[in-house]
Write a protein that binds this DNA or RNA. Structure first.
Lengths: 198, 198
DNA sequence: GGTTGCATGTAAATGGTTACATGATTGT
DNA sequence: ACAATCATGTAACCATTTACATGCAACC
């Protein structure tokens, strides 16, 4: 499953421009299980047109740049359906955040706390967005997927809220002197220094 | 954050061969937030050695192929610590499973049900593995990360168990005749046919 | 006799990110 | 004046996946 299939999927829900597709993938109902940027979406759309999976018409808008609106063709629909029949590959996750907390006790308590707070902010914003998508009642599969995303994010929020204190306390214990008794300047230096090489 | 950093992280927990690193990433405590295969791990280890981040000694074993055991050098430790100070990039998730259920009502009820059952099996196995990792009590950060992984997987299990029926029922409604009144042969053909082109 | 586990690697191909390039309009 | 939103695209670079190549030991 690649960005091309993703585009077919987004367009199954109605025609859209490349820009609009990116928004749906970045903030909309696809955001919690797929990521894609302009650099992969635009070429994917061009290729799908050449393959006859999409039709495209240019639309000029008042006071806005022109845009290209893409539509699924019957072939495009068939290719999407066929992709849906393949056995799903394993999830691929890559989370810097998880990697960071995995080594939580190597960080200063201050920084760890900030990382966790930022994460909570992000998770809460994400839940809001997914709930907004659920609000304009989507088809059942989409609703199921959104609900699952919300459940997963909520579980993360609850867990982090419940356990952050013990982790931060542990980091504070391991780092007895540093950073805490000093001004913000010293802390900033400590937290941004870079090792030579690499 | 790339596979090189991942290797440094794994080796922070003790020396290991490329093969052993892969196992930790595939089944062990890293499995829920990072994926990497031999094709990326072996080159990463070679490169890290050349950069002086790792030391390597060859070990021969009785009745087993020789293996190369890697160790973090002081520089390697410093590079890891430095990576930990960078702000974490956004999570990158790519889930075919989610994509599939997103379009749940386009699948036959039978197939959808199988996909969901397989997912539950996989989630339960994953939870068991993460619990096994938690059992030999790891450092606090690692325990936090494992607990979070378990919480997220459990939330998924609960949600799927609670909601699969409504989704499958919906798929059955949308697909009135097909597949259900027929033998397994006909169903199999329906579920594996491929569209020309693509 | 076949599969799984242990163990290492390379080369080609894929796929995606990042940075660049452009430009009007709206809001602070 | 500056940033953000809307809008599209390309090219170079990078990372990773996939397939290939090898081989012994243990288990069923």
């Amino acid at each position: 499953m690649d960005v091309k299939t993703l585009c077919l999927g987004v367009l199954y829900g109605g025609n859209a421009s490349g820009y609009e597709i990116k928004k749906q993938v970045e903030e909309g109902p696809f955001s919690h299980f797929y990521a894609a940027g302009f650099g992969s979406i635009y070429p994917a759309l061009t290729a799908l047109c050449e393959e006859g999976c999409l039709s495209c018409r240019e639309m000029q808008q008042p006071k806005r740049p022109d845009k290209k609106v893409y539509d699924l063709t019957p072939k495009g629909r068939a290719v999407l359906l066929d992709a849906l029949l393949q056995d799903p590959a394993r999830d691929r996750v890559r989370s810097d955040f998880m990697f960071l907390v995995f080594f939580g006790e190597l960080l200063t308590a201050r920084r760890l706390d900030k990382v966790l707070s930022d994460r909570l902010d992000w998770l809460r914003a994400r839940v809001s967005e997914l709930e907004r998508c659920l609000a304009d009642d989507p088809p059942p599969g989409q609703a199921f997927a959104l609900g699952l995303g919300i459940a997963v994010h909520r579980a993360q929020i609850d867990y982090v809220e419940a356990n952050r204190h013990i982790l931060v306390a542990e980091a504070l214990r391991t780092e007895p002197s540093f950073d805490d008794a000093r001004g913000p300047g010293a802390g900033a230096v400590l937290e941004s220094q870079t090792v030579a090489g690499k």
